[in-house]
Amino acid sequence: MIGTALPELSIELTPTVVISTALATRDFTPVHHDTALARAQGSKDIFLNILTTMGLVERYVTDWAGPRAVIRSIDVKLGVPAYAGDRLTFTGTVVAGADDRLTVEVRGRVSLGDHATATVTFTPEES
């Protein structure tokens, strides 16, 4: 099990993705939906909010682990911004595990580098 690579997930960060996820997480900060304002503040464009990064990491692991897996923790170290127009690609590897708890390391990369480096622990199947 340890060393198993998760299938890659690549998400095109269209403005729709960036904005709809921001609103779905009830984050109305303008830098996540207002391009002109984001640029005026020195950003290249609108960018993903952190709650979405957490949600996408969770989705990436459960896509692979299946609906019976139960997420126990998600630790994310944040890196470069994930801007609209970029592509966010997740890769993952199982790094530790016992019967009831597996640990997966996840990297979410964009063109500028690592957007998120995450450690996710989960229980494969709720007992």
């Binding site: 709809s20 997480t25 979405t52 949600g55 989705r59 019976r68």
Partner: peptide, 13 residues
């Protein structure tokens, strides 16, 4: 449901 749709998360659990 809104959140799942936005994230593209199809987990039915």
């Amino acid at each position: 449901r809104h959140w799942l749709t936005a994230m593209g998360d199809t987990n039915p659990a």
